[in-house]
């Protein structure tokens, strides 16, 4: 089976139209509309409980909206799920070696063995994990595990990489390593969409900000504008640290 990634037309932009999500009678995402274009690093920012992770999962297709539409620009016949990847706050590593974890998504896509080996090696080396290739994935430290999760996403050469609070559980040094890895993925041409509640990280990584508050998309602006001239009271309060509980 040929790999669908050979397809040249982009799946972006991703468009969300009046997307809402409800769970047990509560409206957790309420009427959100926006689109995500190729190239930029979009950071979904907001306090805890704003619905950032849900929004990311709606974009990635892990959950379906209760109302509204999530649509990709891809031509019909393009395997959209194979063109995107996601890194979770707590990496879910398979009970296999580091290298086998990176190889896994390529096996699912039936990438030929030779190409697979080459790509696994490259991804491991970019993530600085080559020396650990034979180790059990779940015996790595927290930072190494998250780097492995990113390498495993990268190896698929996704057009879009979603990251959900990728450094929330890490110490500052490990977090910096993750950030530079994310930069690397971006530099290789992937669209980055990530959530964070860490303002410093948002400042370092974001090209544009989507500010989410209690399920509503209150602001969308390029990073410089958002951080200097927030339009809403909630964003101002968040930037001042009043809402960052």
């Amino acid at each position: 089976m040929a790999e669908p990634a050979i397809e040249t037309s982009s799946i972006l932009p991703l468009r969300l139209e009046s997307v809402s999500y409800e769970a047990s009678g509560k409206r957790l995402i309420d009427g959100v509309t926006f689109d995500l274009r190729a190239g930029t690093r979009s950071v979904i920012l907001g306090p805890n409980g704003a619905g950032k992770s849900l929004l990311l999962r709606l974009c990635h297709g892990l959950i379906r909206p209760s109302a509204g539409n999530v649509s990709w620009a891809a031509a019909s016949g393009v395997a959209v799920p194979y063109r995107q990847a996601m890194v979770f706050q707590r990496p879910v590593l398979l009970r296999r070696s580091v290298a086998a974890n990176v190889a896994y998504p390529l096996r699912l896509r039936r990438t030929p063995a030779r190409e697979r080996h080459a790509r696994v090696e490259e991804a491991l080396s970019r993530a600085g994990l080559s020396a650990l290739a034979g180790r059990a994935a779940r015996s790595l430290s927290g930072g190494e595990q998250q780097r492995l999760a990113i390498a495993r996403a990268w190896v698929m050469r996704p057009e879009v990489l979603f990251l959900d609070e990728p450094t929330a559980n890490l110490d500052p040094a490990a977090a910096r390593a993750i950030e530079s890895l994310i930069d690397g993925v971006h530099a290789s041409g992937a669209k980055i969409v990530m959530t964070t509640h860490d303002l410093g990280q948002a400042r370092r990584l974001a090209d544009e900000i989507l500010f989410l508050h209690r399920g509503h998309l209150l602001e969308r602006a390029d990073a410089a504008t958002f951080f200097t001239k927030p339009k809403t009271a909630e964003a101002s309060a968040f930037l001042k640290g009043d809402l960052s509980w």
Partner: peptide, 24 residues
């Protein structure tokens, strides 16, 4: 434990079964 990650990888039903049996 694996559900979201396998969903994200777009693993097919048989691939999912094989993965879980092997990892378990």
């Amino acid at each position: 434990e694996y559900n979201e990650q396998l969903h994200s990888f777009a693993a097919g039903p048989l691939q999912r079964l094989a993965t879980l049996v092997w990892d378990g």
